[in-house]
Design a protein around this nucleic acid. Structure first.
Length: 517
RNA sequence: GGCCCGUUCGUCUAGCGGUUAGGACACCGCCCUUUCACGGCGGCAGCACGGGUUCGAGUCCCGUACGGGUCACCA
């Protein structure tokens, strides 16, 4: 089994594309076959290399390796369509010679008028081939009129095209509703359909697994393949990935619309928080949950993304949702791919990420979190001891690796007080400031300042003052962390250490005084 | 508009003629708790509609509605 993914170099990797690529990759790995990456750059005049880089980076991040393609080569290269011109020219020549294609000299304007007319009469547009050149003299005559020729397919005008599909069974369309599609431009350069069919054959692709939006393209590809005498690959058309909260196809261009959707907006701002604090160079063009880059930048686990994407339009049995990578490879089947589009749910993806991350070994989490802590300036050198303590204490509060920025107060003294919490816990209770002041002295004199020592000291203080723990602990938290919530108070004190705790309580008391005044 | 595809809780889905229509995420409530999370328990909520076929239809057939894809000298 040989499958392929054929992106055009656009400069980014879309999660819908990843889902398609994933199914292809899964099939190849499961069967012991090959997964080919081919670059569809027939239309590209720009810097292909630069536009390709983010795509390759994305696949590498996701751990989806390709057996043949850019960087790795292979026996059927080159894997860039822009470098395969000869093969296309040969194919076009054969189609022309065999009468399956013809030179056409209709002007774009004339074609547009014909299409307009068909639209008005409510019928399918079928080109009547009135500018078809069947001989060399015909071509010269048209060219003398200043017309430019393109090569068109001479499609069947009767009968049916039966498209076998591994996901949908059989799809049948009338040939008569198909157009004489252009396969070569006026300058002779090939168009997508021609190139795609020629390459799939040359690269011995056995299974063409792609999004359902290609379904209407399939008859003309079948026509080309048959005309060229190629055996047909097996086709499988996947439902496309739909936008969050909607049914339309997920598109990078409609991000503005998605940001009005609650869960998408939440994920996006979650990402921005991390990016801001880590000083990541992000562009609004690529930093958003439609693109893989976003997840890589904020510390998602690649396997989680793949696991979630696999479940978009596929299920094992309706109850099991979590799969290790090797299980994905083992269990995936085209037979269980759904027919209806599946909408992308950012909240569910985050939920997958959160509890998968929480199951990782502490060391592993520390390793993942470290680059973010460094980028955010929370650690100078490799102070893994305190990082380890924070990661352990934070537990499942870290959903993605970048969430370490939420605990910046464990590392550095510059933090903001949460205004609401400050007012409620420090300013409002009458005795809060006085209690903090006294507690500070006790902490200064505490025998030990590990978790147990901090706890004993604070609790001893409460006993002595005959107050409940709840009457002081909230103010203490705000004073030492600025936050209304966080992990265990005594863990927090121990991690901060005596000096910082005392200093922060003093600073808090001062702020309270100046706020009062 | 032509051609094609689709339709089970808000979302992802299970279901392949007989089920109190199951699970997950989200949401709501309760419990746990020094806070925030986690966790536990519970709740809300679905077969688009109309005809057939059948003893019996979420499951099969037809139609309607709605949604979507596609109609380039883009891929």
């Amino acid at each position: 089994m040989r499958t392929r993914f054929a992106p055009s170099p656009t400069g980014y990797l879309h999660i819908g594309g990843v889902r398609t690529a994933l199914f292809n990759w899964l099939l190849a790995r499961q069967s012991g076959g090959q997964f080919v990456l081919r670059i569809d750059d027939t239309d590209s005049h720009r810097n292909v290399e630069a536009a390709l880089q983010p795509i390759l980076d994305g696949f590498r991040f996701l751990g989806m390796d390709w057996d043949e393609g850019p960087d790795v080569g292979g026996p059927h290269g080159p894997y860039f369509q822009s470098q395969r011109g000869e093969q296309y020219a040969d194919a076009i020549e054969r189609l022309l010679n065999d009468g399956h294609a013809y030179w056409d000299y209709a002007r774009p304007k004339e074609l547009a008028a014909m299409r307009e007319e068909a639209k008005h009469s409510g019928t399918a547009f079928v080109y009547d081939r009135r500018y078809a050149a069947d001989s060399q003299p015909d071509r010269e005559r048209f060219e003398k009129e200043g017309r430019q020729g393109v090569v068109r397919l001479r499609m069947h005008r009767e009968g049916q095209c039966v498209m076998p599909d591994l996901v949908r069974g059989e799809v049948i369309v009338e040939w008569a509703s198909e157009q004489d599609h252009v396969i070569a431009r006026a300058d002779g350069s090939p168009l997508y359909h021609l190139a795609s069919v020629v390459d799939d054959h040359a690269m011995q692709i056995t299974h063409v697994v792609r999004a359902a939006e290609h379904l209407p393209n399939t008859p003309r590809q079948i026509f080309i393949a048959e005309a060229l005498g190629y055996p047909l690959p097996k086709y499988a058309h996947l439902p496309y990935v739909a936008e969050p909260g909607g049914t339309a196809k997920l598109s990078k261009r409609k991000i503005d619309k998605y940001t009005k959707q609650r869960d998408f907006a939440k994920l996006l701002s979650h990402g921005h928080k991390i990016a801001d604090r880590c000083g990541l160079a992000i562009s609004s063009e690529t930093f958003n949950p439609v693109l893989v880059d976003f997840y890589q930048k904020i510390g998602f686990l690649p396997d989680v993304l793949l696991n979630y994407l696999m479940l978009l339009g596929w299920s094992l049995d309706g109850s099991r949702e979590r799969f290790q990578r090797d299980e994905m490879v083992k269990l995936f089947t085209l037979e269980r791919v759904n027919l209806a589009p599946a909408s992308f749910d950012p909240a569910k993806l985050l939920a997958f990420q959160a509890d998968t991350f929480a199951t990782l070994e502490l060391d592993h989490r520390v390793e993942l979190v470290r680059p973010f802590a460094m980028a955010a300036g929370l650690m100078q050198g490799d102070d893994d001891a305190s990082l380890g303590a924070v990661v352990e204490a934070a537990g499942d509060r870290l959903k993605v690796a970048g969430d370490i920025v939420d605990f910046d107060y464990c590392f550095v003294d510059e933090f903001e007080y949460d205004a609401k919490a400050f007012k409620k816990r420090v300013l409002t209770p009458e005795d809060a400031v006085l209690l903090l002041s006294e507690l500070s002295q006790h902490l200064e004199a505490a025998e030990s300042f590990d978790i147990g020592g901090a706890e004993a000291t604070v609790k001893g203080f409460c006993e002595k003052k005959e107050i409940q723990l709840g009457q002081i602990i909230h103010a203490l938290r705000v004073a030492t962390t600025g936050q209304p919530g966080g992990f265990g108070m005594f863990e927090t004190l121990a991690i901060l250490g005596r000096d910082r705790v005392v200093r922060r309580i003093q600073a808090c008391i001062q702020k309270a005084a100046s706020d009062e005044a």
